[in-house]
Amino acid sequence: MKLRRRDVTLPQTLGAIMAQVRVGFVGLGLMGQGMAANIVAKGYPLVVHAHRNRAPVEDLIARGAAEATSLADLARACDVIFLCLSGSPQVTEVVAALKPGLAPGAVLVDCSTSDPVVTESLARDLAAIGVNFADAPLSRTPKEAWAGTLDCMVGATPEVFARIQPIIATWAGKIVHIGGVGDGHRMKLLNNFISLGYAAIYAEAIALSEKVGIPIAALDSVIRGGRMDCGFYQTFMACALEGNRESHRFTISNAYKDLRYLESMANDAKVVTSMASAAKNAFTYAMANGGDGPADYVPHLADFTAKLNGIP
Rank of each mutant, 00 (worst) to 15 (best):
75 A>E: 07
75 A>M: 07
75 A>F: 09
78 C>K: 07
78 C>I: 03
79 D>G: 12
79 D>E: 12
80 V>L: 11
80 V>K: 08
82 F>S: 02
84 C>Q: 09
84 C>T: 09
85 L>A: 10
85 L>F: 06
85 L>T: 00
86 S>Y: 07
86 S>R: 01
87 G>S: 01
88 S>Q: 01
89 P>I: 05
90 Q>A: 15
90 Q>E: 15
90 Q>C: 01
91 V>M: 05
95 V>A: 02
95 V>W: 03
96 A>I: 00
97 A>V: 06
97 A>K: 04
97 A>T: 00
98 L>D: 06
98 L>V: 03
99 K>R: 01
99 K>A: 06
100 P>T: 08
100 P>Y: 04
101 G>K: 08
102 L>Q: 00
102 L>W: 01
102 L>H: 03
102 L>R: 03
103 A>D: 03
103 A>Q: 05
104 P>Q: 03
105 G>Y: 05
105 G>A: 01
105 G>I: 01
106 A>P: 03
106 A>Y: 01
107 V>K: 06
107 V>A: 05
108 L>T: 08
108 L>H: 07
108 L>S: 05
108 L>M: 11
109 V>K: 12
109 V>E: 09
109 V>S: 10
111 C>E: 10
111 C>I: 08
112 S>K: 04
112 S>N: 02
112 S>Q: 06
115 D>R: 06
116 P>S: 13
117 V>S: 13
117 V>I: 13
118 V>P: 11
118 V>R: 03
118 V>W: 00
118 V>D: 04
120 E>T: 14
120 E>V: 15
121 S>M: 08
123 A>R: 03
124 R>P: 00
124 R>E: 05
124 R>H: 02
125 D>R: 04
127 A>P: 09
127 A>W: 03
130 G>P: 02
133 F>I: 06
133 F>D: 04
136 A>Y: 14
137 P>D: 02
137 P>V: 04
138 L>W: 10
139 S>W: 05
139 S>E: 08
140 R>E: 09
140 R>H: 04
140 R>W: 01
140 R>D: 02
141 T>Q: 12
144 E>I: 10
145 A>D: 06
147 A>C: 00
147 A>T: 11
147 A>R: 10
149 T>N: 03
149 T>A: 03
150 L>R: 15
150 L>N: 14
151 D>A: 14
153 M>I: 13
153 M>Y: 15
153 M>D: 11
153 M>P: 04
154 V>I: 15
155 G>A: 15
156 A>I: 06
157 T>H: 00
158 P>C: 13
159 E>Y: 06
160 V>K: 10
162 A>K: 15
163 R>K: 08
163 R>Q: 10
163 R>M: 05
164 I>E: 07
164 I>D: 07
164 I>P: 10
165 Q>Y: 11
165 Q>I: 10
167 I>Q: 07
168 I>H: 08
168 I>K: 08
169 A>M: 12
170 T>A: 13
171 W>L: 14
172 A>C: 15
172 A>F: 13
174 K>W: 05
174 K>Y: 04
174 K>P: 04
175 I>Y: 10
175 I>P: 00
176 V>W: 14
177 H>S: 14
180 G>W: 13
181 V>G: 02
182 G>D: 02
182 G>W: 08
186 R>C: 14
188 K>I: 05
188 K>M: 10
188 K>N: 00
191 N>T: 13
191 N>D: 11
192 N>D: 01
193 F>H: 12
194 I>C: 13
194 I>E: 11
195 S>H: 05
195 S>I: 11
196 L>I: 08
196 L>D: 05
